[in-house]
Amino acid sequence: MGLLSDLMEKIFPKNKPVDPKAAPGPVTVPEPAAVPKPAAVPEPGTVPESRPEAKPAVKPGDVKVEKKPEIIETEEKPVAEKITIGHVHMSGCTGCLVSLADNYEGLFTLLDNYADLNYCLTLADVRDIPKMDVALVEGSVCINDPHSVADIKKTRENATIVVALGSCAAYGNITRFSRGGQWNQPQHESYLPIGDLIDVDVYLPACPPSPESIKNVAVMAYLLLRGTDEQKELAAAYLKPLMDLAKRGTEACGCDLMFDVINQGLCMGCGTCVATCPVRAITMVYGKPNIDSDLCIKCGACYAQCPRSFFNFDVMNQFEAIGEAIDAAMGKGDE
């Protein structure tokens, strides 16, 4: 039972006259023969229960609450088994979630065909962290806040794949600069990247990670969990460098370009880091990046985007085919 449904009951009491137009809905819906698999969402009952409440405007006066889960099942498109994705909000600015939403119609395609958003404080009416296939965690963990610590632990328990969505989750990012003293929780001053408290499977750094990159990772996660053997192989190859990033550590800085690229004799001066930096802290000097550390917010985007941090030929050599496949999966022309 979500917050919204409780509210609805208060706003629309049971004695409200039933709208005759809306009546046929629950009665006439046939059991669809087309639905390929019986257990659309084998996970907790909270999922179907909560979703009908998410669109109460359809028939707010409907008395038969128990029937609603059935309606939802019939409304769902007969697609292959979706994965469940949750968005877990730690201490961050919600920019990463906005970036996810900025896929615009692509987000709907994603939710129609590939993934159920079964947890998301901002967009879905579910209060407790449910079981999910993929947890997109935004923000770092405020260790002065017991709820946050409990939530990140529960996320690890309940999610098959934990993705650090954005630089706060991956590296701390701007929350590294916190000194506390903000109203209305001035005692909240210590923030850790989620990787300092739990094992993280995939990093998707940048502030925020672009809508396209979140879309790509979501599609690849779907292929990894539900695809054919061939698709699984491709998805695994695609995600591997992002998994390696997760193993690399929880600290990032523009300095990574010095330590792990220039100092290692790998920089060839392409300028990718300059274009990537969200705060324009990087300029090219003597053909190599120069980092203004006063501006750097430690998001790690420059290093992750650098072609000499990782470059997997097995994936990159198929760039055209992969790009077309993702476009096709997303219904093409959704950009």
Partner: peptide, 23 residues
């Protein structure tokens, strides 16, 4: 150069910090 084109393709396939660039 070839390395710069590699960077462009990475920016399209892994566009973390390259919003609305790849397409």
């Amino acid at each position: 150069t070839p390395c710069q084109i590699q960077a462009v393709r990475k920016a399209q396939l892994y566009p973390m910090g390259m919003r609305s660039v790849g397409s």
